[in-house]
Every structure is written in structure tokens, then in C-alpha cells.
Design a binder for these strands. Sequence first.
DNA 1: ATGACAGAGATACTCTGA
Length: 259
Amino acid sequence: MRIATWNVNSVNARLETVRRWFEQEQPDVACLQELKCVDEKFPAEPFERLGYNIAVHGQKTYNGVAILSKTPLEDVRRGLPGDDGDDHARYLEAVVSGPTPVRVASIYLPNGNPIGTEKFAYKLNWLKRLNAHARQLLALEEPLAMVGDYNVIPEPRDAEYPAHWTRDALFQTESREAFRALKWLGLTDAFMQADGSPGAYTFWDYQAGSWQRNDGIRIDHALLSPQAADRLRGVAIHRDVRSWEKPSDHVPLVVELEL
DNA sequence: ATGACAGAGATACTCTGA
């Protein structure tokens, strides 16, 4: 089973690019982030035509996450527990049905810039809530894939130019510590486990020729429970998609589980 | 030190992203 995660930066502005990738790759499951539309505006039809069941947690203009699956989705949860006042659509969870069901979460973690503001505090609080929820899910002892745009550069090796990010929320000590804390719960970073080669990035800014200079960072991650990590067979970052016409600034990350 | 891109939705002297 192949599970993909991709921050598409507006699913409607990106529709042709995303549809083309789905047609080529036909992932069993795909988690999308930054839909930038409400549920009713999600372009379901082209994906249903490719055989997908769809769960959407959308929002006007900002955020928005989805899970698409070739098999039916069950036990859908919208929003991260722990703050009823949080109205950002950044978390969606569902169980992908099949002989071995897999719980999948589509995550769009707050950016948190600029540091020292409310936004950075929101990011750290969100990470704390994600940690608490991950702890609950791990207690279920089932195959679990928490995938998405974590907006965290875990280590200097995950940036071509680490010095560019020293004052950025994505690379702050607190952000990196919180990401490590998730892993210490018992989650495996699928890319590091199955590949780990340096220079593997998932994001290049639109600005300042970042793509041309390969000024990339690895901020999209797939964290697996032990029961999913046992079945990890491989991982791929679809780097070439960044050179397509009208690209997202993120590229797809695909995890293969033997199920 | 600043801007550079891109998208949404506004019609802005904006907000957000990373």
C-alpha cells in the first residue's frame, strides 16, 4: 500500500497538476494539505472518477486538509483535540479500510512565523496537542501513519543552507525539540528509516530562485507507529514534480507499506 | 535591512505562507 502526502497550495489552483500526478501514480491513499477551500469547493469529481473515496476538512482561503483513499474511509475525525476554540482546519484522521486497516492522519502544522509572536506560540501549542493525541493513538497499538506538512526542519542536514533558517520558526530549537518529542513517543520517521540520504527535500520557496539554487528543506514527514513501521518497505520523494508547470512549492512524499 | 513568489479574495496602503 502506498500512502502519499502533499501540500498542494490550493487544490483548485493546482487541480490540473494534482490530477495529473494522481493519474500517473494512483496512490492507494493520499493526504493533502493547504486546500484553501471549504468542503463544498473541493473538486471531488475528478478524484472520484479515479476511484477515490474522499474526506475533507476545509476552510475558506487558508489551511484545509483531505484524505483520499481507494477503499472506504471509516472513523473520520475532524480537528485536533485539545482546543475547542481552534478554528484552523489543520487535522483530519480516518481509518483506511482493508484486510489490515490503517489509521491515517493528514496534518498541516502551523508555520509559526514570525518567532516571538502569537503565531509561534500557537505552533508550539499545536505540537503539544499533537503529541498528546499521538500518545492516545499509539496506545491503540495499530498501524498508524501521521503524515503531512509538519513545518519543521528536524536537523541541519534537512536544509541545503541551514544558515538561511536560523531565525525561522521552522528551525527553532523549540520546534525541533517538539518534533523529536513526537518521535520519542515511538513514532518512526519513514524517510530516515527507509532512505535517509542527504539532500532530500520536500519544499523549495517560490521566491529568490530557491528551486534553481536547490535551496530546499525537508519539512513534509511521515511518522509511523511501530505496527506500521514493521511493514515499511520504502519511501520516495517526487522531486521532479517541483519542475512541472504551475507547481506547488511542496512535492509529494510517498511511503510504501507491505499490507 | 529589504524584497523577491504565489494564492485567495479583496478591490488593499492586505493577509498568509515558509
